[in-house]
Design a protein around this nucleic acid. Structure first.
Lengths: 350, 350
DNA sequence: CTGAAAGCGCTTACAG
DNA sequence: CTGAAAGCGCTTACAG
């Protein structure tokens, strides 16, 4: 009986109004715009609130204001993959830093019940950033329907969709040229290519990069159908890199160079080669993409394409906040510079 | 005039009710519990919703259900520090994996307007996980007032507060003993110690670890006041590790071993020593804490305490979800095993 | 099976 | 300066 009123029943604005003798309006103003009420009223209200430990319920507040004070980062894959990729972590850091500066939280949105679409439906955010999502995904439709502002990172730039990318085709072209110039002609290409095979209408960053590879190959009289060019689909994880290597080990004609679309895959492949006593780059060369910090430390260090994940995250978040606040957007398509990084993992065999 | 009604005005449940000829109740059921209405009603409603691209507003839904479908991860420091620490990333991965499994999002909560308290006030989550927060923080008061379930990782276990830790005192004791057994007597200790100095009533994991160090030192007739023992406060970043090293370089009597409370600090220190041509471990030994992946790759590899960040994150998240759903909790204080990892960075000088 | 209505806890134009 | 009241868009007992 004594703690009858402490019976769960969380305290609301109503209680504070009653307790302080002011209206709910006044209580609300005390917290949000004290200048609208007298100093005395404000003091009394805050005092009472303090005593009973009241603070406006964020959920109700957000609902009333129709805002979440949070943006989302949509993970295209299982979190166990995404989060193990240092490149994604760099992107995350960039996004997070901007959120922090803007007083927002950052909502990580993994596939819900294994469905990205489902996750987007339920996402309680003011806008979101996608990473590595192809245009084939119905996700974008949904986003447009929900009128939820969003920005893609490593998506395929289409005029309607705000994006942050490096020039993927050019970067892919550059690194493939480097490989070819080093004398390699038997080349394996590893990337998330299943998308491409399945649905020729769909676009993805892998396809964009592939176009760059092809352009370079053609200059050397090669193409994807050439007998010395092997393509193999491969998700963006270290294990898949290992797996890719093991497959190549068993190929009749082993390639002299493996071109991957991700450092993490390249590193996985190198590890597997090592385990099978295949020396990189002496027996086989490997090149990556991203230039994650590990690619410099790793032995052999990785020849790769440097793209600044953190900067991409930052720019994407800034763009998103501009979209949310409906500021005039100067440019909805941001292109970040990349650099080819030559290190140890590519050997000149010419 | 033609697109008068497309005038922003997002569609709501009301519109679907009107359009479909059913009530809002029916529309709601169509999405949440189709068994409560006729198949025909459901089909009609879903059909209409489909056509106009309607889906229940998550914010309103959450508000009505009084749930966010999201848990928070409270970052004690600037995101630029937290996110650069691989150990934190491991914890994050563990938490994230459980969120994904439970169909929740994970809200990253950086200090809001540089205030952790402010951040907690505004956090729109069903519960949260803190990492590395001392008991001195008013944050816990607030959490209790808001009746928000929470779990601490690397906090100081107090009976009222659910926690996930290794046995920090014992682990610290073990590694310090290892250092002493290797013959070291001039020892520098680096950790976030300012808390301790400022407020002796406060508790923190650093203090717990320090107690372990002291216990080991005493067995060798030493204590924190011994002239050969140097303490230096040091935040948990690679730069601070560098800074710590530069200070020790200038000490009159250089220590023979640096004991840090974090691998990232240890690595920073080693890098700085290297730059000053001080060889680790030949000129000076360094030991860490955490056993982040880098500490195995790094040259010299790091002697350290292995604590599984991912596992800690996972357990903390599972515990939190249990608290939120008010399941019977078997154990509110989880202790995870640790291991001392002996590698290259500690030299035997006896 | 179906729907009118209360309720979730705030914010904020509006009138006084 | 102050407060009654509408509104944010859902969910869900409850009555029919």
């Amino acid at each position: 009986m004594p703690d009858e009123h402490s019976k769960e029943k969380r305290i609301t604005i109503k209680d504070i109004a009653r307790l302080s003798g002011y209206s709910k309006t006044a209580v609300s103003f005390a917290f949000n715009d004290p200048s609208r009420i007298s100093a005395k009223a404000c003091a009394t209200i805050l005092q009472v609130a303090q005593e009973v430990g009241y603070y406006p319920n964020p959920l109700a507040r957000n609902f009333s204001l129709q805002s979440h004070q949070s943006i989302g980062f949509l993970l295209p894959q299982d979190i166990n993959y995404s989060f193990r990729n240092p490149y994604i972590m760099e992107v995350l850091l960039g996004i997070g830093a901007v959120c922090q500066k803007n007083g927002n939280t950052l909502t990580l949105i993994p596939p819900l019940h294994e469905s990205v679409v489902e996750a987007v439906r339920c996402a309680a955010v003011d806008g979101l950033i996608t990473q590595g999502m192809g245009t084939e995904m119905e996700v974008f439709d949904l986003l447009l329907k929900r009128k939820l502002p969003f920005v893609t990172i490593d998506g395929v730039p289409s005029t309607q969709i705000p994006s942050v990318n490096v020039n993927d085709e050019q970067a892919a072209y550059d690194i493939m040229r480097l490989v070819l110039a080093a004398g390699h002609r038997r080349i394996a290409i590893g990337g998330l290519l299943e998308v491409i095979e399945e649905d020729s209408a769909s676009q993805s960053i892998q396809r964009t990069r592939l176009a760059g590879y092809v352009k370079a190959l053609q200059e050397y009289g090669l193409n994807l159908s050439s007998p010395t060019i092997i393509m193999h689909t491969c998700a963006c994880t270290i294990e898949e890199g290992r797996h890719l290597a093991s497959i190549l080990l068993n190929a009749k004609q082993r390639p002299t160079c493996v071109v991957t679309m991700s450092d993490i895959v390249a590193i996985g492949a190198i590890l597997a080669f090592k385990e099978h006593h295949i020396a990189v780059p002496d027996d086989i060369s490997v090149v990556g993409f991203d230039n994650i910090p590990e690619s410099a430390y790793h032995r052999p260090s990785l020849t790769t394409v440097d793209q600044p994940g953190e900067e991409k995250g930052r720019q994407a978040a800034q763009l998103l906040f501009s979209l949310i606040s409906k500021k005039e957007i100067v440019e909805r398509h941001i292109q970040i510079p990349y650099r080819i990084i030559e290190r140890e993992s590519l050997k000149n065999i010419s």
